[in-house]
Computed example of a mutant assay.
Amino acid sequence: MSSIPVCIDISHHQGYPDFDQVRASGVLGVIHKATEGSNFIDDARAENLANAKRAGLGIATYHWLKPGDARSQIEFYLSVVDPEQGERVVIDYEEDGCTLHMLKEAVQALLDYGSDLQISVYSGHLLKEQLGDNVDDFLAEHTDLWLAQYASESSISWPSGTYPQWSLWQYSETGEVPGIDDSYVDLDNFNGSAAEFLRWINPKGGFPMPVPPPEPSEVVSVAITAPEQVGVRVMINGKVVRHRPLRPAKRGPDIVR
C-alpha cells in the first residue's frame, strides 16, 4: 500500500490545509464533514472545499448521522450543502444508538431530494454487526460502502452480503499528509484505479483532469533526528511545511444531544 492515500477525509479539526501541497503529494480527493445531527454546521467546509477544488482535487461531503429523526437531519444537511446534480454524498453511520431503520430513512430522504445523487454509507463495526450476513436489497440498490477498519487489507471484513465489494476504505486515522499541520488525518484508499476514483468522487457526467504536481528542478534531502518529546518545525524558504507534534484528530460527534 502506498504511503500517500488516494483520498483523505477531514473536518474543522484539521484546520485550513494547504491543498496545493496536499495535491502535490499525490492525494486525489477530499471528503469534508458538512453537518451533524440537526443543527451542527462545520464552518470550515465551504472554504476548504473551494480551495481543494481550486487545487484540482475531487471533493465530496458527509453528514454525521445521530440517533433520532433521520429525515430531518438529511433535510438539514441538504439545506446547508445544496448538492448539485449527480453529486457524491455520504452518510456517516457509526454512532451507537443509530439503527438500520434510521439509516434507510436517511437514504430515502436523499433519494426523495432527486438530483440523481450518488449515495455512500461510511461505517465500520456498527453496520457490519447490524447487517451480518443478510442481504439488504434497499441499501444494496441505492448505496455503496465506505469501510472504516484499521487493519491490513488482507484481514479486513465488511457486510459482503449487501456490499460484495467496498468502494472506499479508511485504513488509518493517524495519517500525515503534506499541507496538513494541525492534526493527524484519516487516510483512504479506493477499490479501483485513479481514474475510477475521480469518476466516483465527482458528480456524474464528468470529472476534472487531475492537476499534475509540479516537477522539482532540484531535490534537496535533509534528515532530522529528534527525540519524540521534542517538537520540530521545518521551514523551507521561510514557509513552515511541517510542525511536530501533531495533535490527535477528534473522531467522534461534535455535538451531544
Rank of each mutant, 00 (worst) to 15 (best):
H32C: 04
V241M: 00
P159W: 02
M235V: 14
N134S: 15
D82T: 09
W166Q: 00
D254K: 12
V80E: 14
A195G: 05
L111H: 08
Q118R: 15
P164D: 04
V220T: 14
Y62M: 06
Y163E: 07
I10A: 01
I201R: 03
L78Q: 01
V177G: 00
V256L: 13
G205F: 11
F76W: 04
V219H: 02
G114P: 12
D92C: 08
N202Q: 12
D112H: 06
R54S: 06
I91F: 03
A70H: 00
F40Y: 14
Y93A: 06
E176M: 11
S72M: 11
P164R: 05
V232K: 05
E75Q: 15
I74Q: 07
R54M: 05
Q229L: 10
G175K: 02
V121L: 07
G252L: 03
G56S: 09
L139E: 03
Y77I: 06
K204E: 07
S221W: 09
V81K: 07
S172D: 12
G175E: 08
M102E: 15
V107K: 02
D133H: 14
P216S: 02
N51P: 01
G26K: 05
H142F: 10
V6I: 13
A109K: 03
R54P: 00
V220A: 08
S72K: 15
P208Y: 03
S172V: 07
I4E: 01
G29E: 01
S79L: 07
E228S: 12
P178E: 12
G26D: 06
C7H: 05
K53I: 10
D43C: 09
